[in-house]
Nucleic acid binder design. Structure first.
Lengths: 343, 343
DNA sequence: CTGAAAGCGCTTACAG
DNA sequence: CTGAAAGCGCTTACAG
């Protein structure tokens, strides 16, 4: 069977093809009865508008693209659950607003040819992912130069030229720091790359450092170990920290996955959490609640984040001015950091 | 700035527009030097082929669509981690094969207008999701009738007219049953809707029942409680089971989420796992490893599943004959079912 | 190896 | 309220 087009519908309904198009787009110019006949024909023939033709003509596609960046060094088999959760919420938000979502994975190391192509296929782009920020930034500049419409998930900064949606990582880190201090901790280790290359981690680190500063204390360089957001890396970082032989009474992991890896390393060395070491993570992935002991962490509201990203992008597409959004990040205290309770 | 087209490139490279098209599609008919000039112009102007125009002309889009069905009764805020994992692996498989992936969420209760539309936007469709199978089946018949190319994730059955990729749920259930018997369990409860409406659960149930049958035992009706795949539902189902006041020494939950909910309910009633009750789930979601005690379960290989779904669909699109795939499901024994160890 | 021509299926001024 | 016409940007026979 050859493809059914608007001409087939027009023929069956006894009207011209443009009238079919008008009726289907809800034009008020079409007579009610004519519209009925057309809709009936559409049903009978099971016709659907060809989106490619429609998009080509209208110069908009009803599609948004999600470019997901994976750190190329990350574990091949599993995607960070936090990003999966973001992906789910973005997908849902798109569906609710009547947009399709095109997803593609990118590796920062590869060239961005595919992305540019997506810029043609979608009305706008959402950038999502960790990865080296400085490399990432250059790519963003290219997208901007092309006049692409896009928003990004990530740290919200004053000089940032791109509309961003992100959690308040600094306040989250601050809350963790204050909480650990209140538990009596004084020597807080930080697991995660706290350099400018990973601005989320950087902000979390400095939030915690601010809490210490206010208490007249400081983070110590010898208690910071780089780690990327995987269990494996968290495990290795904790081992590294232990190998240094320096004393610490708390570990603030830059993400939950890092924390969970660290938890395993600590346990294997006979250190009990929270009795010997208080532990906190960041993200509040589902696993955080189920590890033993349950993990104190900072919740990032992925549902709201997804909706905000999509809404911001849609406004941008409609030519409205859009500001970046800083979402609150909320401390969730669970057993892994409760030292008072443990004696 | 107005949009750059292949005519702009042609002009700059001093050739005709069709030659640009040929060069960009890798036609061997183009002179090497001509091609160089064209590619140079493409770079300078940052040109990208308009996918809509290209798709319209070629009648194929280089895009696959993933229709994800959510049980409308499911928890709004979270997506089953198992499906998130599938989503991740399908996305990755598409990217690797040079296809874009269009994702949309569907609720089985709503009409399928959107799906048909996707059929026009993508070269093929992947169906994914739990949900009432009988309702789902009718929708599939409609897609078939439209000549849509699609594959589905789900139970593989002989009379199934749709190319399917699924785990061997029966063998998985069988392995769980045999394992629980080996642990000395005799009265095995099953949490999950084991009716024809949920064929995955149904197969898991009957696999386990087969193990009992071989041992001269049987599953008992009073030990089966319906549940859908959420923690909340698993919690409720376990409470329901406990309220019946019948004796049981093991719980086989139809999914890990159900198992995790049940674990909480059991603990709250003072029942210890595995000492008082052995517990097993199904899926091997990341959380299964981190709950306390770690959950015995059946691993579904989502990575392979995603690749197989995409490859099967691509073959279908290329007009090849494609068989369904039954993926092995592997028992993963963890502490939640080890009664011997517990005395 | 390259160009002129037709056409993919729609939408939108332009007339009426 | 409706139709005839042009055109979105590409690809692909068809000539040469």
């Amino acid at each position: 069977m050859s493809k059914i087009t608007s001409f087939d519908i027009a023929h069956r309904a006894g009207v011209s093809q443009p009238t079919v198009s008008r009726a289907l787009r809800g034009s008020p110019l079409v007579n009610a009865q004519t519209r009925q006949r057309i809709l009936a024909a559409v049903d009978e023939l099971n016709y659907k508008v060809d989106k490619n033709a429609s998009s080509l003509r209208c110069k908009q596609s009803g599609t948004l693209a999600l470019l997901f960046f994976e750190d190329p060094t990350a574990d091949e088999s599993h995607i960070n659950p936090f990003f999966l959760s973001m992906l789910g919420s973005i997908t849902r938000a798109c569906t609710q607003r009547g947009y399709d979502l095109l997803i593609s994975f990118q590796q920062l190391s590869r060239d961005w040819h595919a992305d540019y192509a997506d810029a043609r296929k979608a009305d706008g782009i959402i950038l999502l992912g960790y990865g080296d920020y400085l490399a990432y930034r250059e790519k963003q500049a290219q997208l901007l130069a092309q006049g692409a419409r896009f928003v990004r998930w990530g740290v919200v900064q004053a000089e940032q030229p791109v509309v961003s949606v992100g959690s308040d990582n600094f306040s989250g880190g601050l809350a963790v720091g204050e909480h650990l201090l209140a538990q009596g901790c004084r020597r807080i280790a930080f697991l995660g790359d706290a350099s400018q290359h990973f601005p989320e981690f950087h902000a979390r680190y400095h939030g915690c450092a601010e809490a210490l500063r206010r208490a007249g204390l400081a983070m110590e360089g010898c208690l910071q170990v780089d780690a990327e957001s995987t269990e494996r890396s968290g495990y290795a970082a904790a081992e590294n920290l232990l190998a240094r032989g320096v004393a610490f009474d708390a570990v603030f992991a830059a993400s939950d996955l890092i924390a969970i890896g660290a938890l395993r390393a600590l346990n294997e060395r006979g250190l009990r959490v929270p009795e010997d070491v208080a532990l906190a993570g960041f993200d509040d992935i589902p696993m955080a609640r189920s590890v033993h002991p349950a993990l104190t962490t900072v919740m990032q509201d992925t549902k709201q984040a997804g909706e905000r990203l999509v809404d911001s992008l849609l406004r941008l597409i409609h030519g409205e001015a859009v500001a970046s959004t800083l979402l609150p990040a909320q401390l969730v205290v669970r057993r892994s950091s409760l030292r008072g309770q443990a004696g």
